[in-house]
Structure formats: C-alpha cells, structure tokens
Computed example of a mutant assay.
Amino acid sequence: MVFWEGYVSDETMGTFAPIIVYWLYGGFYQLLQPLDKYRLHTKKEEEEKNLVPLPSVVKGVLLQQLVQATVAQCLFLLTSAQTSGKIKQPSVIVQILQIIIAMFVMDTWQYFVHRYMHQNKFLYRHVHSQHHRLVVPYAIGALYNHPLEGLLLDTFGGAISFLISGMTARTAVIFFCFAVIKTVDDHCGLWLPGNVFHLFFQNNSAYHDIHHQLQGTKYNYSQPFFSIWDRVLGTHMPYDLVKRADGGFEARLKKD
C-alpha cells in the first residue's frame, strides 16, 4: 500500500513524480546558493564562467523532461499491456535487489555513452558541449543537455535500467526519484556538511565538479551513483578540498 494508491496509477507516478522531485529538490538547493561558504565556486566565478543564462537552462530542462515523460508513458503502457489483471508487487528484498541492479545498469550505460560523447569530437562539439556550458554547475541545471543527449544518456539509460532490472512501475517510482535526487545532488555545486550521500557515494558534487573543470573533462565520467567504471578504466581523478578565504571549499585536482 502506498499513499497514492487509489488516486493515481503507478505508471502516472513513475512518469511525473521524478519531474516534481527534480524541481522541489533542485529548488531547495538553489535557495542555498547565496551561502558562499557552502559553494564549490564563488558567485563571481559562476557569472564569469557559465556561458548560458538561467532562463535558457530552465527551458532546456523542461524540454528534456517533456521527452522523458513521453517515453516513460509509452514504456509503462507497453510493459503493463503485457500483463493481465492487477500486478503483484514483489517483496521488499526483491525490490531492493532490482533497484541495485538498475543502479549498476544505469551507471554502466551512462559512463560509456558519456565518455564516448567526450571522445567523439563531432558529438562533443554539437551535442555534449551544451551541458558543459555550465562550467560552474548548479542544481536545476543538472538535466540541462542537448535534446539528443538527454534522449540517449538519460531517457534511454532509465528505460534500459527499468527493463533489465524487471522492476514494476511502483518500484520504478522509487528508483527514478532516487536517481533524480542523486543527479541533482551531484550538480548542485555545494559542499554541505552532513550530506548523507557523501557517506555512501564517493561520486558526489565535488567529484563531478572536477569533470566540469577544464583540466578534468577527460576524467570522472561516472554518474550518477558509483565511480567504479572510472576506477576500472583509468579515468578516475581524485580531488582535494581546499578551503577558500571566504570559508568555503573548492575541489581541486589532487596533486601527486
């Protein structure tokens, strides 16, 4: 029994809950942006280095979410049409296992697609470079991508994770909302004390901030959960957190 049962379908929740979570969680982080001591870059750096204004970022994210919602609805309709009657939900243990499998599938897909978009000069110049216009990332820009990248990297990655893990639409609500929260957290540009994600994931906001820096664009491709593929394939770049004069921290490539 879940709180939305009887009000909206699992398929509808799986489609729209991640979008709502994105703007709520991202919006919360945006409210913290004026707190310089928690920023990985100063406000001045953001204004000088970022190559796209906030309204354009919002429009780009909304476009990607429209595509994601359309694909999600089609995917849920296709999979639900193959079952008859009410879907029996698996045990909690099975659902946890499915989510873990989906996490590894999504990480694998996104690592190799993301890395190839850097290595292929045409794809980087005409597609992936749009995401890197945010040299100083911030929360609501997490899904600011070229529409083709959004489709290949995020939308297809989510669909493949859903299908391979075998999860139901109800489990997918949890997984996709969690994936959105983690993606926003990685792009928030903040280093907050007590962030629970830093306890379980080495792939965090500082780790991904290195990738957005000019010297780190060939490293730290992994997203959104683990850094396994970076470590296995030699693209892992550790970092040092260096304290700034204003009391905040910045991530710098680790010195040998």
Results as ranks from 00 to 15, higher is better:
241 L>V: 04
167 M>F: 03
96 I>R: 03
43 K>F: 02
85 G>I: 02
94 V>D: 08
134 L>W: 04
131 H>W: 09
64 Q>G: 15
41 H>R: 13
235 T>V: 09
138 Y>A: 05
231 R>I: 10
243 K>W: 04
191 W>N: 08
184 V>C: 03
148 L>T: 11
120 N>H: 07
34 P>Y: 12
151 L>E: 09
235 T>L: 08
210 I>Q: 10
74 C>Q: 14
229 W>Y: 05
180 V>E: 04
4 W>A: 06
123 L>N: 05
88 K>Q: 15
42 T>K: 00
199 L>D: 02
167 M>V: 08
199 L>C: 10
256 D>E: 14
139 A>N: 01
148 L>S: 09
241 L>G: 02
244 R>E: 02
56 S>W: 07
111 Y>L: 14
44 K>C: 00
225 F>R: 05
103 M>H: 04
125 R>H: 12
45 E>R: 09
61 V>H: 07
197 F>Y: 12
69 A>V: 06
228 I>V: 13
237 M>P: 02
77 L>P: 00
87 I>P: 11
95 Q>Y: 03
243 K>Q: 15
188 C>Y: 00
193 P>S: 09
196 V>Q: 03
253 L>H: 10
55 P>K: 04
151 L>Y: 14
235 T>S: 15
241 L>T: 03
59 K>H: 13
29 Y>F: 15
84 S>C: 07
94 V>R: 10
60 G>P: 11
199 L>N: 06
138 Y>G: 03
226 F>L: 14
53 P>C: 07
173 V>E: 00
225 F>P: 04
104 F>T: 03
34 P>L: 10
